[in-house]
């Protein structure tokens, strides 16, 4: 019995390693095996997938971080979710990763006006979803006022703004005033991306500037006392 448990634990660990390494096809195969052995779906997600992404946090904060590896890990997560996890959940419980949330807060996310780079933003979206947030992804080239309006419509507690290009950074400053104009001063605004790393919250008129995708999660953990 103990040996069986150990073997399952090892397989879950292997799933986490494969996801972190971006090996989507093999990760789906291992996830399928685990589920066939009767391992709980949520255990596969939390210990196999979420753990894999958490392990990338360390990499994200050192010199060896690169977008390619994070992107591949994100793709592996998505494929395991869509091919193995969601079909096994009840109707309406998880039709896609978008609905995999546990009643946490709503996070409105987008790339700022004038910028169409959305790779970093997409990675943040995956991490947020895995952390249980409901993500409202506004896409790219988003007007500052639209962030505010969508936050109101969706009842969001957080707004995340991505910007890779320095020349678009001044639009980020306009989001808080747009929130103020509709009495939503309480919504917290986070910024991140290649351009914003040069700056600080005061310059950008935001509550937090994330250097990496994982900084966003760390910030939220602190805010929510998790």
């Amino acid at each position: 019995m103990a040996a069986k448990k150990d073997s399952r634990k090892n397989e879950i660990k292997r799933l986490a390693d494969l996801v972190a390494d971006g090996q989507a096809t093999e990760a789906v195969r291992v996830a399928e095996n685990l589920l066939a052995l009767g391992v709980d779906v949520r255990q596969v997600v939390e210990e196999g997938l979420t753990e894999a992404l958490v392990s990338l946090d360390v990499k994200c904060n050192n010199d060896h971080f690169n977008l390619l590896e994070i992107l591949l890990a994100g793709r592996a997560v998505m494929e395991v979710m869509e091919q193995s996890i969601c079909p096994r959940l009840g109707e309406g419980e998880c039709v896609s990763l978008d609905t995999w949330y546990k009643g946490k807060e709503v996070f409105v996310l987008g790339t700022i006006k004038g910028d169409i780079h959305d790779l970093g933003k997409n990675i943040v979206a995956i991490l947020l979803k895995m952390a249980g947030y409901r993500v409202v992804d506004l896409g790219k080239d988003v007007e500052p006022e639209v962030f505010a309006m969508e936050a109101k419509k969706e009842g969001a507690k957080y707004i995340g703004i991505s910007s890779l290009i320095t020349t678009t950074m001044h639009y980020i400053k306009e989001v808080k005033p747009a929130l103020g104009a509709i009495d939503l001063e309480g919504v917290l605004v986070l910024a991140g991306g290649g351009a914003t790393r040069q700056s600080n919250p005061k310059d950008l008129n935001v509550d937090f500037v994330a250097n990496t995708a994982f900084d966003v999660i760390d910030y939220l953990r602190k805010k929510e006392g998790v």
């Binding site: 010199d63 060896h64 971080f65 690169n66 977008l67 390619l68 590896e69 290649g194």
Partner: peptide
């Protein structure tokens, strides 16, 4: 850049 691809690539 290293931010995008690993040095070996």
């Amino acid at each position: 850049s290293q931010n995008i691809i690993p040095p070996r690539i």
